[in-house]
Amino acid sequence: MSTTDTSAVSSDALRRQKEAIEISGWGERFHFVQPHNLSFWLYLALTAIGAFQAWAYYAPGAGFYAGGLAIAAVLCGLGGLAWFAWFRHIDRWERQPGLLIAAALLWGAIPATFAFAMTVNTAMLGIYSKLFGQEWSASWAAGATAPFTEEAAKLCGFILLMSLAPRLIRTANDGLIVGAFIGLGFAVFEDFLYAANSAAATFGTDPVGNASQTAIGRIAASFVSHPLFSALVCAGALYLIGTAAQPRRIGRGLAFIVAGMLLHFTWDDATGLGFGNPFVMIAVMFASVVIGFTILRIAFRKAAPREHQFVRDILAPEVEAGTLTDAEVDGVLDRKARKEFQKSAPNRQARRARKHLRRAILDLAHDIADAKGNDTEAVHHSRAEVERLRARDGISRQV
């Protein structure tokens, strides 16, 4: 069993570790049931309203188009599961608790979709058609409505979750991840809504075929959709609010919020922006995809230094005690250092070991945070795993 020599650790390193764990919220648990928190009851009430609205919308036609609804649910659910797996993969610093992620998905799926967006969108689209006519509405009404109503609906849930998990949602990276899951819940149920509606098209003559075609088309376009929009908007909101772990950045926050809403606008109004020309419309959508992912990459890069500092501070005693080296920690955090660390490996087996070592080092940081800096069985195991990987493949502590 591996232990850290505390006599070799300075009080400054221990202080940095303690402060990082306290400020970051790494290792904190999420408790959804909070009877003394008004946000808990508000979340439940709005979810109940959304569930009632959803039942009222689907129940009348469920018996007539059961096959179409079933295939739509399966296809949209599978698409959502694929994106869920990817989002969990990129949530690599301090993975959000499963219950918090479930609450984020539920908000996007039920309250945001049915208690807010669908009701308000229907009203606004009716107003636009009366004010500006059907032709204008066909090209511009969606973009003049959804970026405001739908992003506001998703953002309301994010604010509620911040009040339910104030020690877990603290950095811009948390905003990006939780916002993406809220958007995922919204996207899956919106895709299902469109597919379910298409089941009744052509007087219900081919409900399964119509629903399948619509669901596949919606899923194919979902790589730039609500998860991207709400990730940017929620990260921007967190910058605006500021937390103990994330200094307030008003300009940056506004920029990300506006970017998320503008991307939503260009995606919804690609037809109008393309002036009815299908080639121009495709060009607009392609440009929206490229710009969207470029901005998202910038957002993650801007959020990364705060998370990197938490990792460095949490692992500072391990480095001073000789359990880890600075080069190994840099290899976890910095892309350039990671490439150099990999290139310096003497053979393929060592390169593979160093890849696993990076994962083991991050696991050690997580276990230390979970233990609040104490030496627990999990921490001992993670240290032993680091030593095992290094010893097995000849990785020197001096690398």
Rank of each mutant, 00 (worst) to 15 (best):
S7M: 10
A259Y: 09
I71V: 15
A13W: 01
A303M: 01
F310V: 12
V289A: 04
V178N: 06
I23S: 06
L14P: 01
R352H: 14
S139N: 14
G143A: 01
F203V: 07
E385I: 07
L42F: 15
I182N: 00
A172F: 04
G133H: 10
L193H: 08
R383F: 00
S163C: 14
R249H: 13
P111L: 14
L69C: 02
Q134D: 13
N197K: 10
R388T: 06
L357C: 04
S198T: 12
L315F: 07
R397S: 11
A196C: 07
V188T: 11
R388P: 00
W26T: 00
A221E: 08
A365D: 08
A283R: 05
F132Y: 14
R301H: 15
T113K: 14
L44A: 13
Q398T: 11
L168C: 06
L333D: 02
R15M: 02
V284E: 03
S225Y: 07
W267E: 04
A144V: 11
P147E: 08
A215G: 10
F310R: 00
G394A: 00
V33A: 14
E307L: 11
T243E: 08
I257G: 03
R88D: 14
F30T: 06
S139R: 14
R338T: 09
T271C: 10
R388Y: 08
R359N: 06
W267N: 09
R390Q: 02
D313M: 05
M285I: 06
A187T: 12
A85W: 13
L75T: 13
R252H: 03
Q96E: 14
R358S: 12
M285L: 15
T6Q: 10
L164H: 07
S212N: 12
N197I: 01
E377K: 01
M281K: 15
A199F: 04
E22S: 06
Q213W: 10
I182L: 08
A369V: 00
Q134R: 12
F30I: 02
P227Y: 02
D393E: 11
A211C: 11
A152Q: 01
P278S: 12
F286V: 09
E320K: 05
A70H: 03
I127R: 12
A195L: 02
P227T: 01
A180F: 00
I71T: 13
R383V: 04
M1W: 05
G204P: 04
D326S: 12
G274P: 08
L69S: 06
S225L: 08
V120P: 08
L38V: 14
L324D: 05
G50I: 05
L273Q: 07
S288V: 05
R88H: 14
S344G: 07
V386P: 00
R348P: 09
I23E: 09
F300R: 11
R390I: 04
A70I: 10
S137T: 15
D269R: 01
G133Q: 11
W26Y: 01
W93K: 05
L364Y: 01
R88Y: 15
H226M: 05
K339D: 15
R358A: 10
E19R: 10
K343Y: 11
L238D: 09
G209R: 07
L160P: 15
